[in-house]
Design a protein around this nucleic acid. Structure first.
Length: 139
DNA sequence: GCCAACGTTGGC
DNA sequence: GCCAACGTTGGC
């Protein structure tokens, strides 16, 4: 199965990369947006996801891997609408890649996340993914 | 703290 | 089915 690339977003106060690092694996729950949910459903095992901190930090801070494809997230009164996937922690970026940094580069013009900052799960192209990794090494 | 963008809800 | 009102999120 081809690897797809994603960006997942979290408020560090709610779920931070540090906690993720400690837990190693986490169920990605709480997505209550249909567009984001549909992206979750498209995720394959071993897909890679950039981990972004919203709020004060506004930077991509790490990388995670999908280790379990979508399964229902039952909530009271609605057992079937929402889904979760499992991610495992891969690593923190050496240098976080800030939102400002992304906005300055032409390569990210069509990055869905920049257009819809509220979307908690969004696709990233392979090229963009590796460009971000490169930026994390450099600066 | 404000505002823009987006989603949801409810009245018609 | 439309649209106004409202709530939430996140960047600035």
């Amino acid at each position: 199965m081809a690897t797809n690339y994603w960006l997942i977003k979290s408020e560090p106060e709610t779920y931070s990369i540090d906690l993720f690092e400690k837990e190693k694996t986490t169920a990605w729950t709480g997505v209550r947006n249909y567009q984001a949910r549909n992206f979750l459903k498209q995720m394959n095992k071993n897909d890679l996801a950039l981990f972004y901190h919203s709020g004060k930090e506004r930077a991509i801070v790490g990388i995670s891997k999908c280790v379990k494809t979508f399964y229902p997230e039952p909530i009271p009164g609605d057992e079937t609408t929402w889904v979760q996937v499992d991610f495992s922690f891969i690593k923190k970026l050496k240098h976080p890649v800030s939102l400002l940094n992304l906005k300055q580069k032409k390569e990210f013009e069509n990055l869905l996340f920049l257009k819809q900052s509220r979307l908690s799960v969004s696709p990233v192209s392979e090229k963009q993914y590796f460009e971000i990794l490169k930026m994390a090494e450099e600066s």
